[in-house]
């Protein structure tokens, strides 16, 4: 009896600090955001007025916000898809993609492994500023310079509303791939080598090796990657805010939920309305989390 009590106390003592921190710095701001969302607070006054659900009614006819939601949705589908396909391909080549007998990576795989991880080391803001220069629409642009030297017209990577979104996606993929190459490499390392060797002896080529051995045995890791990348797609902010023209432009063609929240709060000084947008984003994220947990329930393969 006494031991159980001591045990409970011991656990409580350890949990108290993290739980309190979590309550204070995570749960309480959420609760406050729900309250602020129902006020007309403009960020500077001490006494905001309670306006009920007005802000939520208003956001339903906010064309720009819904445009932002569709951009998040498109990223939610495209970012994981493109990143995982590229990362799987690279991880496969780096680990089991070598020609001929035996299991190993292509020549120079150690070097490529470092190279692919490099973008992950850079801060998002640095990446954003870097790519502003890469995408410059004149002769000093890293992409447009060669294009113009060949006599082609420069592409408005960030200034053409039809292209800008794809530029953002491209940069996000570029930055994310390296991490997932490492993640998948780790996954591959846990697959017993004899499986690959057995398949090779049975005459499997690289393609069937990938689809019949690598992919099925990596499926758990792929699901984890999918959830991580989905979260990245939901809360993308800095890349868009720093890199794109007019913070989500041109003509709102790259804007996402987080940039609209920031714009309404810190540029329009409508903190109440911005909080309402934040609450909506919260439900989208929760929805995504529940959905991905449901879908990823699957039997594990024991080796």
């Amino acid at each position: 009896m006494f031991n159980t009590y001591r045990r409970g106390l011991f656990i409580t003592a350890f949990l108290a600090a993290p739980v309190t921190l979590y309550l204070v710095y995570v749960i309480s701001p959420y609760a406050q955001a729900f309250y602020i969302a129902m006020t007309d607070w403009r960020g500077v006054t001490a006494t905001p007025n309670f306006v009920g659900l007005d802000n939520f009614v208003r956001l339903f006819s906010d064309g720009v916000f819904w445009k932002a939601v569709t951009h998040n949705a498109a990223l939610l589908v495209l970012l994981p898809l493109v990143t995982i396909v590229i990362a799987l391909f690279f991880a496969f080549l780096l680990n089991v993609g070598s020609e001929g007998r035996g299991v190993g990576g292509v020549a120079g795989s150690k070097f490529y492994r470092v190279l692919f991880f490099f973008p992950q080391v850079l801060a998002v803001t640095v990446v954003a500023v870097l790519f502003q220069q890469v995408f410059r629409p004149d002769g000093s642009g890293m992409l447009n310079g060669p294009l113009m030297a060949l006599g082609a017209r420069p592409v408005g990577f960030l200034s053409d509303p039809d292209v800008a979104f794809w530029s953002v996606l491209g940069v996000m993929v570029w930055q994310a791939v390296g991490f997932y190459v490492v993640l998948f490499s780790a996954g591959l390392a846990s697959i017993p080598r004899d499986m690959f060797e057995a398949a090779q002896i049975d005459g499997a080529g690289r393609v069937s090796l990938f689809f019949r051995i690598t992919l099925p045995l990596l499926w758990d890791t792929v699901q984890v990657a999918w959830v991580y990348l989905g979260i990245l797609a939901m809360d993308v902010f800095a890349i868009v805010w720093v890199m794109t023209d007019q913070h989500g432009g041109p003509d709102f063609s790259t804007t996402v939920m987080a940039t609209e929240i920031y714009r309404n709060a810190f540029q329009h000084f409508r903190f109440g309305y911005a909080s309402a947008l934040g609450v909506v984003m919260f439900f989208f994220t929760i929805g995504f989390a529940i959905l991905s947990l449901r879908l990823s329930r699957r039997e594990r393969i024991e080796y």
Partner: peptide
Amino acid sequence: LRAAAIAPVAGALAACATPQSQ
């Protein structure tokens, strides 16, 4: 342990985003 449990509570006061009349 007691101190560890109490310290974050002090931070709670600073973590308020809602406006306070002062």
